[in-house]
Simulated scan of single mutants.
Amino acid sequence: MPLPTASVQLYSLAEQFAQDMPGSLEKLAAIGLRHVEAFDFVGQAEIRAALDASGLASPTGHAPLLSDELWTPDGAIPTPAPEVVFEAAATIGMQTVIDPFVDPARWLTADGVADIAERLNRAADVAATFGLSVGYHNHAQEFIASFDGASAYQRFVELTEDRVLLELNLFWALTGGQDVPDLVASLGDRLVAVHVKDGIVPTSNPWAPGAPAFGSDSLDQRRAGEGEVPLADALAAGTAVEYAVIEYDRAPGDVFDDIAASYAFLREGGYVA
């Protein structure tokens, strides 16, 4: 398998990006990155010009396709219609739009999981009319319930069509109690991206029923290679991973320094091209 390309999820520097979009992208380019993963991009037509000016591209992006509003650790964002999302994504030059979060309660029943899968299958129909594909990005709620020995996430993978792509957040999969390299291997060629996020994994799943309220300020995140996530083994287990996407919900220090350190881990370890 060709080595993945490094990318960075722009949510990692949401504050800096909102304050100075061109300057933030120029700093990422100066680090050596050539790809980013856009977040909350609908209605921000200026992103394409800023990307072009910095020499960056956003082949993947996060946008809600399955929910009326998108949850983040720091607040909810209303969601536009899928057609609006796909039009904006095509304008930016994306290839794949990835839904980043579905409410934990919807993952607790077999009917809920089937509904999520069917909605994403149908979203793939609409995306195709824009020349795009769709995908799903996990957190840890997908690993709470199980049905006949299969996790809700595994059932979702079985019910979605092969054209629905997958992006595995390695940190959250480990938080969900998964053997992360084994899970990566089991997803085969549908797994086209991983989130390279490291840190000290929470002692319990923060989305389990009855868990305390969760926010990004409670996470102990570390630079890649300095936490508990088996990043090297997970990356080695992929068969078709195209993008290794650096992400911090809450960077431990200066976000650009932390992104540079994670990129150095990927590059010096030979994990990215």
Rank of each mutant, 00 (worst) to 15 (best):
residue 2 P to I: 11
residue 7 S to V: 04
residue 9 Q to N: 15
residue 15 E to P: 01
residue 16 Q to F: 12
residue 24 S to R: 11
residue 29 A to F: 10
residue 41 F to P: 04
residue 43 G to H: 06
residue 46 E to C: 03
residue 58 S to V: 05
residue 66 L to A: 09
residue 71 W to C: 10
residue 72 T to C: 06
residue 73 P to K: 02
residue 83 E to S: 13
residue 85 V to S: 05
residue 85 V to D: 10
residue 86 F to K: 01
residue 87 E to W: 03
residue 87 E to F: 02
residue 90 A to G: 12
residue 91 T to M: 15
residue 91 T to F: 14
residue 95 Q to I: 06
residue 96 T to P: 08
residue 106 R to A: 15
residue 112 G to E: 08
residue 113 V to E: 07
residue 114 A to P: 05
residue 122 R to S: 12
residue 125 D to Q: 10
residue 125 D to E: 15
residue 126 V to G: 07
residue 127 A to K: 04
residue 127 A to D: 04
residue 140 A to P: 04
residue 144 I to M: 06
residue 147 F to L: 01
residue 149 G to Y: 11
residue 149 G to C: 08
residue 150 A to T: 06
residue 156 F to M: 14
residue 159 L to P: 01
residue 169 N to M: 00
residue 169 N to Q: 00
residue 172 W to Y: 04
residue 179 D to Y: 00
residue 193 A to H: 02
residue 194 V to L: 02
residue 195 H to C: 10
residue 195 H to N: 13
residue 196 V to S: 09
residue 202 P to T: 11
residue 205 N to S: 01
residue 207 W to M: 14
residue 211 A to W: 07
residue 222 R to A: 13
residue 222 R to D: 02
residue 222 R to G: 01
residue 229 V to Y: 00
residue 239 T to W: 09
residue 244 A to Q: 07
residue 245 V to F: 04
residue 247 E to W: 05
residue 247 E to D: 05
residue 252 P to Q: 03
residue 254 D to R: 09
residue 262 S to C: 10
residue 265 F to V: 02
residue 268 E to W: 03
residue 268 E to H: 10
residue 270 G to K: 13
residue 272 V to F: 09
